[in-house]
Amino acid sequence: MRETSGSVFDYLAKDISALGTFHSRKSGVVAAYGDVLHAVDTEGRPTVLVPIGEPKDGPQAWRSKSLVLQTVNLDVDDGKMPFVVLRCIASNLNHQFGLLVDDLLDAIEVEPDRAANVVSVALDRWRNLFEGDGGGVLSPAQLAGLLGELTFLGELVKVHGPAAITSWKGPQGSRHDFVFAGCSVEIKATTNHNNMTVTIHGGRQLDHPDNGDLYIRAFQLEPSPNGVSVPEKVEELIAQGVSRSELLMALRGVKYNYADSLAYESSRFVLLTQRSYLVDDAFPKISSENLVPRGMIDRLGNISYSIDLGQLEPIEHDARNVQLASLGGS
């Protein structure tokens, strides 16, 4: 198994060159024109060097607040060779850059003859993760809610495979967290160990979807040093085959910045219980469908209310009961 790029960059940074050159090491991945190199520059900034055929074959140079991309001729054993040089200039994103490089190396290993194009494609997947504003750190309550969503996503992946991430629509601004071919699922979490009271935000959150029924999956969690953290759940999903870049982009949509993972390691939760509920006509709710007179919901602001789900009858509904919308069916 190849050593992670992050650990290689940490090792190389211990011996920074003072000669104005890169301190580099072979990555173990070979492109059509030679070895792809891990490197650090004279300031210890992590860099990947990808050999290409001609300078014009490399992607167009650009610079942002986090990344620098250029094509330069570097000295090699038998003269000079053009390399695509990608480096991270934001030290708080060094770990995230290591993940980008791991993804890049995996792709070059599959298509060594198209290394320059592979760099461009990888950057298209990762660039937004580096350029977005980090925002504030999530609260424990927000982390508990996110852990509930990731736990349900993990159940889906076990049944439907890594493509299940396409059903997670909440990070894209959808009304409901998960959308399937024949239903939608809203995830709720509470850290109150005495009851399963959850908060509903907005007058439309429990509106029925256009594609069928609406379900609530509720998680009752308890803070505990022996529990699971969101960063652990993220790595678990990646180990299950979920695309790292797709997952991190979705997390960005819920204001979770991967660069803050260390800050979230201590926020851990154990699962006390989880239950599912059908949001039907008998379910207590405020929605555009039951507000009188109809059509007035958008004139009411700041709607937020709590429901004690422990007083309601749960149903059996899990990942096996849904069909990914991308696969059709119901």
Rank of each mutant, 00 (worst) to 15 (best):
K233Y: 01
V234T: 04
E235N: 10
E236V: 09
L237V: 07
A239C: 10
Q240M: 14
G241L: 06
V242L: 06
R244S: 13
R244A: 13
S245L: 12
L248T: 04
L251R: 01
G253W: 00
G253F: 01
V254S: 03
Y256H: 00
Y258N: 07
D260F: 08
A263G: 11
E265T: 05
E265C: 05
E265G: 03
S266R: 06
S266N: 11
S266P: 05
S267F: 10
R268L: 02
F269V: 02
F269T: 00
L271W: 04
L271K: 11
L271T: 05
L272T: 13
T273Q: 15
T273D: 15
R275P: 01
R275C: 03
Y277D: 02
Y277Q: 03
Y277M: 03
L278P: 07
V279A: 00
V279K: 02
D280I: 05
A282I: 11
S287K: 04
E289N: 09
N290C: 09
L291M: 14
G295M: 14
M296S: 12
I297L: 07
D298Y: 10
L300W: 11
L300Y: 14
G301R: 15
I303W: 09
I303Q: 04
S304P: 06
S304L: 11
S306Y: 04
I307A: 03
I307D: 05
D308V: 09
L309T: 11
G310R: 12
G310K: 11
Q311K: 15
L312A: 13
